[in-house]
Design a protein around this nucleic acid. Structure first.
Lengths: 251, 251
DNA sequence: AGGGAATGTTGACTTGAGTCAATAAGGGGA
DNA sequence: TCCCCTTATTGACTCAAGTCAACATTCCCT
């Protein structure tokens, strides 16, 4: 078992909210892919009233920890969050990476306590959505209720995809699939699908994909040699998307 | 890639409902662990009105298939269901086994089409819960809305546990964890936690756990030799639960 | 009850990813 | 800016689980 090194950033206080981080959901550029999706302007205003925007996080800082009381779900506004759980014997499993516009914390609803921990991989801003308020609002706003059911369902479907990946795929396939997932999610946010910076370390990638760091590193090198990627540290350029897609499911 | 053998049972017609399979949720012995959980009698009646009980399935018959239109979620009343998805290159991944009192089909909500297929592992009866009705009812019944959110959340948390299992654990650990999961779920239904019949084949177990049949078989033999289990075909007796629990997370 | 297909078991061998180890390259703090 | 600690890369070797193959058993179907 690996002993966890002390994380100096963990217990930094949450920054005071010295200025407005975002006036409202209405003028947030992420609204089309985030919770407000499919809501009308007046409905967005109501949602807006329950959303709290006072949580900028430093790199390495936790948003919540496993077994903390569950109060809220969170939407990422900027930066990247990683969710992970710790097994009984102390090993970590990264269960997901969350980019702007994506919702995390839904796994805490069932038990009223968070089933995983969430940590900022870089400076990150999140919107906090208190769950009891969201429930009340959902009861009166069919679109919102529907959308939240859909978000949870999507999380299930995505987890199942990861299950398939972990169960059936080679190291190459796994890494290719992750890169394509990031690429697609970037596209949704109007960012380049081919050039991006990995906010997570090789360790995190390996942990998420069920591989060791060494294997991840070797796969990157191999793909670079094949001309599929250009890897320079955390900067990734996908040179041949088709080839990458083939690698992602060619067994 | 394995070619799928033709499944002779697949297209049998749904049996006509010649008698009442279950008068109502109110007198269903599973109500305490199923959807009605935490509802009051009058609320259960309302839920009861939208539940349809006309779906007994033969072994091997499908309840729904991947990419079918999503209309309903289903509660298992008797028998066992298996959910699985087919990857682009034709491989199968079993994503879950569902026992009486458990809900399946929630992964279809996000897309309005089922993200997986569901098949009966033995003769099985299910309750169909039309989702639009459930949504409407949820809006007026906070307990129901809450409980359904919790069910979805639990599915997420359980998938994450499987992810951890697939990502980090040895063959022994995986098999031990599955057996313990079945044992716990049996206990919830007042069945023996130590003696039960596996309704799924070794192939399904292997597929679910990301192992080959041969490996599953070898693990069973090994555990039997160690005196942890008695395995006789599909009949399992857990002889030493503590040892099994140690095997489930001892790395 | 009998026969044949499907399912399960066991053994021998192979292999992809893990482990261990050495080295290189970054990057944040004083 | 330099230094040190963290992160990443590469190589050599090992091993757990996969593959291939033979055989045993079970479960349907007639």
């Amino acid at each position: 078992m690996n002993t966890q090194l002390i994380d100096l950033n963990e217990d930094l206080p949450v920054q005071p909210c010295s200025h407005e981080y975002q006036a409202s959901c209405n003028n947030c550029r992420l609204s089309s892919i985030c919770l407000p999706f499919a809501l009308e302007a007046s409905e967005i205003d109501q949602l807006d009233n329950i959303v709290q925007r006072s949580k900028p996080l430093q790199k390495g800082q936790h948003l919540y920890r496993e077994s903390d009381d569950f109060q809220s779900v969170f939407a990422v506004r900027s930066g990247t969050m990683k969710a992970y759980r710790t097994t009984d014997d102390g090993r970590e499993q990264v269960t997901g990476f969350y980019f702007p516009g994506e919702i995390l914390g839904m796994d805490g609803i069932s038990n009223n306590s968070h089933a995983s921990s969430a940590k900022a991989l870089e400076t990150a801003a999140v919107c906090e959505i208190p769950f009891t308020s969201l429930e009340k609002l959902s009861a009166s706003m069919p679109h919102l209720q529907r959308h939240f059911f859909q978000l949870m369902s999507r999380e299930i479907a995505e987890d199942q995809q990861l299950i398939t990946l972990l169960s059936k795929s080679s190291a190459d396939e796994r890494v290719a699939a992750l890169l394509l997932s990031i690429s697609t999610r970037n596209a949704r946010r109007k960012l380049s699908p081919t050039n991006f910076r990995l906010s997570m370390s090789r360790v995190d990638i390996g942990n998420y994909l069920g591989l060791t760091v060494e294997t991840v590193s070797r796969v990157f090198s191999r793909m670079q040699k094949l001309g599929v990627l250009r890897v320079e540290n955390k900067e990734i350029e996908i040179l041949d998307t088709d080839a990458l897609m083939k690698m992602a499911d060619a067994h």
